[in-house]
């Protein structure tokens, strides 16, 4: 087990897959000579050359479509979109071409590409560089959506996404690239479907994904030590499809649920998880599920306002205490 950073885990997955298969290529803005904004492709340009590590112009719609077109012929492109905010410009190609081509061709063509992008609010990046957009991607038929919460997942999910014949969107987080964690030394493939129990508990389930898993873990610690509440933390690393069985299993055990997301509430992960709870295990509930989410505002620049817009572990604790009638 190596203790490495999130970006190093992503870089390792690229490197292993590119060494194994000459059809695996990567492309994006500043990923080659500059080594990648978040270093996720560091050293690859020197190793694999400009034909396979493509520094693209700043043309998200164009280069995303180009990668998708290449994938029709069996190329496996890993397409980095520097910030998820720029993915709006590429969505036509992602949704209309990659996600639909298998269906509308009656199974003749497929688009085995990986889209990686950094989402989430970092530090005062303002309205157009702080978006969380997983809610948009997870509603598209034909597109898989995963979101790693730690280096092991970042490595293993990318490995599986490259091998999978379906298009996969990987939602990363700007604040997590330098996070450290254990990654197996041996080659490892993380499942693209399902969920992980990040911490076992009995009294309430805290659902999180990506950065909000860490709020949940911290909240569980506080709830245990200060309030004697045993919280289970479920990591929803797969946002499409969501793990119906895993959600049902945990809520059937704890009978209470809090969903924590950095995204805004409307039409989001929280609403979807609550819908699944209603459909799968409504009569197991002892209390109405609660969402913890961002304010519905364009992300403010001002530090204090930004902090007020984005939830954290304290909001998760508050939500749980409310569920138990302690707040």
């Amino acid at each position: 087990m190596a203790n490495i950073m999130y970006w190093e885990a992503i870089q390792r997955a690229h490197d292993e897959e590119m060494a194994r298969d000459p059809l695996v290529i990567c492309m994006g803005e500043d990923i080659g000579v500059a080594g990648g904004t978040y270093k996720a492709t560091k050293g690859l340009y020197e190793k694999y050359g400009p034909l396979r590590v493509m520094d693209t112009p700043i043309s998200e719609g164009g280069f995303t479509g180009l990668g998708i077109g290449a994938s029709f012929l069996g190329i496996r492109p890993i397409i980095e979109i520097m910030s998820v905010n720029f993915a709006w410009l590429a969505m036509d190609q992602m949704f209309n071409s990659a996600a639909k081509v298998r269906y509308m061709s009656g199974g003749q063509l497929t688009a085995p590409c990986v889209f990686r992008s950094a989402g989430g609010a970092a530090h005062q990046l303002g309205a157009q560089h702080s978006a969380r957009m997983e809610k948009v991607f997870m509603g598209i038929a034909g597109l898989r959506v995963v979101t790693p919460s730690n280096p092991k997942q970042a490595y293993g999910l990318l490995k599986s996404a490259i091998r999978c014949d379906d298009p996969v969107f990987i939602n990363e987080h700007e604040l997590m690239y330098n996070m450290k964690g254990e990654v197996p030394d041996a080659e490892y493939f993380h499942p693209l479907e399902g969920s992980d129990v990040a911490r076992a508990g009995t009294d309430v389930t805290l659902f999180g994904y990506n950065i909000s898993v860490h709020w949940c873990l911290k909240a569980a610690e506080i709830l245990d030590k200060q309030y004697g509440i045993s919280a289970e933390v479920v990591d929803l690393y797969s946002l499409s499809p969501l793990d119906r069985a895993g959600i049902k299993e945990s809520v059937s055990k704890t009978h209470r649920a809090v969903i924590a997301e950095e995204d805004e509430a409307p039409v989001g992960v929280g609403s979807e998880v609550i819908a699944i709870i209603n459909e799968e295990c409504f009569f197991e509930l002892d209390a109405a599920p609660v969402r913890v989410h961002s304010a519905l505002v364009p992300q403010p620049y001002n530090h204090t306002l930004e902090k007020a817009a984005i939830p954290d572990h304290e909001d998760v604790v508050k939500a749980v205490l409310k569920l138990f009638g302690k707040a």
Binding site: G61, G62, F63, T64, G65, L66, G67, I68, G69, A70, S71, F72, L73, G74, I75, D92, Q93, N96, S97, V101, M104, S105, G106, Q108, L109
Partner: peptide
């Protein structure tokens, strides 16, 4: 679509095939 005949399809977003064609050429 007829992939066997290398007809890679008709697409209904005007201009959408431009980058797809370039991608096929890249492959």
């Amino acid at each position: 679509f007829d992939a066997d005949k290398r007809f890679m399809g008709g697409y209904a977003l005007v201009g959408g095939p431009f980058p797809l064609a370039a991608g096929i050429a890249k492959a």
